[in-house]
């Protein structure tokens, strides 16, 4: 039988694993799924199903407004959300306008993402034309005032702002995207893809149209409150939200099959089988699994160490 001192010693050892070892383990386990993708079963969250279903319910030719407030610091999650959102919009021929209130770099990152997805969806050629099918309006440093202006008079809020068109620089409010847009209510949704606190700025000020958010993982608890109250019509949260969207794009909702996604709230909603639906969600979700597993194991190890240490005293 082990003596009390040896139990305490083991406990102490378990409590003081060297930091470099922990870092190395995390690095290795996070890298492995990126090298060898692991298909994982998934049950999309109701909030993600709502997000997808509302996009799929939009009539073709509808217009939506996107507030893109992410940059590459959260590209693992936000870029995946943006990719999935853009794929659905382009497949449904929905025009969109993009603006930013969170970060000066965000419009450029959004512009590059749109161009990339447009090429991928168009089989190498851009499916969506700048200015004709989408406009990138730019960055507004005063997020609060600008968002209130967007709600008050969306044309006045964006008046004077220009974007690249086939004939040079032109005012965004003259673009085909703004045809028939006289009020924010003419945009079917305002979707905020964000990794910062712009979600609350929008939530507090936008009253004339429906809201949906695509947020980073750490922002999910805060935004679940607004989804639960019905203020948000749909919510994508972190890499799980991305994987949910990719699952939904592949299988749709309530479509019979081995991977059927069920929802009592909706009838049959088609997916886009055969198209390039997998992306960052499929690539990174396994990495999230193994990283969380390491985290849980580390916490358990530390606690076991603490108990052994106490027992051995």
């Amino acid at each position: 039988m082990a003596s009390r001192s040896s139990i305490a010693e083991l406990g102490n050892k378990l409590q003081s694993l060297p930091k470099p070892a922990l870092y190395l383990i995390l690095f290795l386990v996070a890298s492995l799924p990126l090298i060898k993708p692991i298909p994982l079963p998934n049950s999309p969250d109701p909030a993600s199903i709502d997000f997808y279903a509302h996009l799929m319910e939009l009539p073709e030719g509808s217009k939506i407004l996107i507030c893109s407030d992410w940059t590459n610091s959260t590209r693992g999650e936000s870029m995946g959300e943006m990719d999935a959102l853009l794929r659905v919009l382009m497949r449904r021929k929905i025009k969109f306008a993009v603006y930013s209130i969170g970060d000066g770099q965000a419009p450029r990152v959004a512009r590059e993402t749109i161009a990339r997805i447009s090429r991928e969806e168009g089989g190498g050629q851009p499916l969506y034309k700048p200015y004709e099918d989408y406009v990138v309006i730019g960055f507004f440093p005063n997020g609060e005032g600008q968002t209130a202006a967007v709600n008050t008079n969306v044309r006045a809020a964006f008046a004077g702002k220009t974007d690249i068109s086939p004939t040079g620089q032109r005012e965004v409010v003259q673009s085909p995207v703004f045809e028939g847009i006289n009020s924010l209510a003419d945009f079917k949704y305002l979707i905020n893809v964000t990794a910062s606190s712009t979600n609350t700025v929008i939530l507090e000020r936008i009253k004339k149209t429906n809201l949906m958010f695509a947020v980073s993982g750490v922002m999910v608890p805060e935004n679940t409150v607004y989804y639960a109250s019905g203020q948000l019509k749909g919510l994508l949260g972190g890499i799980k939200g991305v994987y949910d969207m990719e699952t939904l794009m592949e299988y749709g909702v309530n479509n019979p099959g081995p991977h059927m996604v069920t929802s009592a709230a909706y009838g049959q909603i088609p997916g886009f089988p055969g198209k390039a639906n997998t992306g960052k969600g499929t690539a990174y979700y396994p990495a999230l699994h193994v990283c969380l597993s390491v985290l849980i194991l580390a916490v358990i190890t530390g606690n076991v160490g603490m108990f052994l240490s106490r027992k051995g005293r």
């Binding site: 507004f140 005063n142 600008q146 202006a149 008050t152 008046a159 004077g160």
Partner: peptide, 16 residues
């Protein structure tokens, strides 16, 4: 209501 978008533009300019 009409003035707010203009005020927002002014504050955006100052913010810049």
């Amino acid at each position: 209501t009409d003035a707010q978008p203009i005020i927002a533009t002014i504050s955006n300019t100052i913010g810049s």
